[in-house]
Simulated assay, not measured.
Amino acid sequence: MITKENNTLIVKSNKLIEASYKLTAGEQKIILTLSSKIKPEDEEFKDYEFKIKDFIKLLGIKNQAKYAEVPQVTKELMRKVFTIKEEDREIQLSWLSSVTYLKGKGIVVLRFDPNLKPYLLQLKSRFTSYNLTNIIQLKSGYAFRIYELLKQYERIGQRTFDLEELKCILGIEKDRYTLYADFKRKVILKAQKEINVKTDLSFDFEQIKNGRKVTALKFIITNTTNQNNAIFQIENNNYIEQVKNIFDEDITPLEAEKIHKTANGNIYLIKEKYLLAKNQKKIKSLVPWIIKALKEDFKPPIPKEKVDSFNNYEQRKYDFDELEKKLLGWK
């Protein structure tokens, strides 16, 4: 069932992410949801139960008359064989070893193929992880694959693929999308539109040509989480007053500008560090402390060595929860 369990991580071997295969969006959601149920301590795959009604929601089937489609979906998934390339061999694998429908209980039970253990269990290195909620809303099967391939290189910020290599990884047959324009429109641009709106990543891409022919793509990868969370970021020229209004104490326009610059214009961060300062007993000088807190990203509790003595002004008694709500604009 897609509830709080969406917050659990999906952890996959990079070999599995780069394997050559193609799944529909519904099939991707099944595999990813199963993957999210694996616990770090698991040494063997388990049986994973779904209520049929939840399974149908996962597949996006809205008409109850189509419940009969579910066994066909899992049967097709059982048939999907894919290839993982190791240094000395190529391995053909299936995703599932069994699917069981419990009659009269409205439950379907799935189990991963045991040959997938090296790629999903007890991973210590060369893996990629992300939250199921970051990807579950995608509707294009290619978008799921491209997201994972870019997530691998998120910290690097870019990744280049030979065009034919990328098509192979995505499981695209050699006689399909032979024209680059079709591949760009139906695969890359379609995936880009979804990923940039529905996930924690966004990407742009550059076309690399050999003569007039596009032979490779360079993806430029951005994590949009911080951008989406910076809901208080200043977008106008009145930032000096907005920063000063956060403080109960008087600060100069120059001090406000320094704070604003240190926070890269993120009002949310300034308010966060100011709340943190209010919860300290003694700080010698408020503005320098805030600037240092922004630079070093102080988090509660603050180590003693980071706190100076502070007695410039009389400390007020604060209800921290109420103050937080007020400063964050909740009241």
Rank of each mutant, 00 (worst) to 15 (best):
I136A: 03
I267K: 10
S94F: 02
N229P: 02
L58N: 00
Y119H: 12
S36I: 11
L32D: 12
K282E: 06
R111Q: 15
F205D: 11
L170K: 04
L201M: 09
K271L: 02
G60S: 02
E27S: 03
E90Y: 06
A191D: 08
D42G: 09
W289I: 04
R89V: 02
P288C: 04
N264W: 11
S125Y: 14
V187K: 00
V307Q: 13
F203R: 03
K167P: 09
K4G: 14
E154P: 08
D319G: 02
K244N: 09
P71F: 09
N245M: 03
K271H: 03
W330T: 02
Q280S: 10
F55Y: 09
N63T: 09
G157W: 10
P114Y: 05
Y313H: 11
K51M: 06
E235T: 12
D113C: 13
I234N: 13
D47H: 07
R155T: 10
E272S: 09
K304R: 08
Q233C: 06
F298S: 02
E87V: 10
T222E: 14
A191N: 12
I107Y: 03
L217M: 15
I234S: 13
I291Y: 13
N236H: 08
Q152C: 12
F247Q: 05
I290S: 11
L150Q: 05
E255K: 13
K85W: 03
L163Y: 15
K295H: 12
S129F: 14
Y239S: 08
T74K: 00
Y239V: 03
V11S: 04
L123G: 06
I2E: 12
K167F: 10
E18H: 10
E69M: 07
L217Y: 13
E49D: 15
F161W: 14
A256I: 05
F320K: 04
A293W: 01
Y119E: 11
V214M: 09
L96N: 01
K190Q: 07
I2W: 12
E249C: 07
I146E: 09
R159T: 11
K15T: 03
G26S: 15
P253H: 07
Q137M: 08
Y142A: 01
A216Q: 11
W330I: 06
F112Q: 02
K29Q: 05
K271Y: 01
F82H: 05
S98V: 04
T252D: 05
A191S: 15
Q152L: 14
I240G: 04
N196L: 04
E257V: 04
Y313D: 03
I231R: 12
V187N: 03
E164S: 10
T160C: 11
K209L: 08
I169S: 06
S98H: 06
F310V: 11
K80D: 02
N134A: 13
K278L: 15
F127R: 14
V109K: 15
F50D: 00
I169A: 03
K273P: 13
T24F: 03
K80Q: 13
N6I: 14
T262D: 08
M1F: 03
H260R: 06
D182R: 11
Q92S: 08
F310N: 10
N196R: 00
S98N: 12
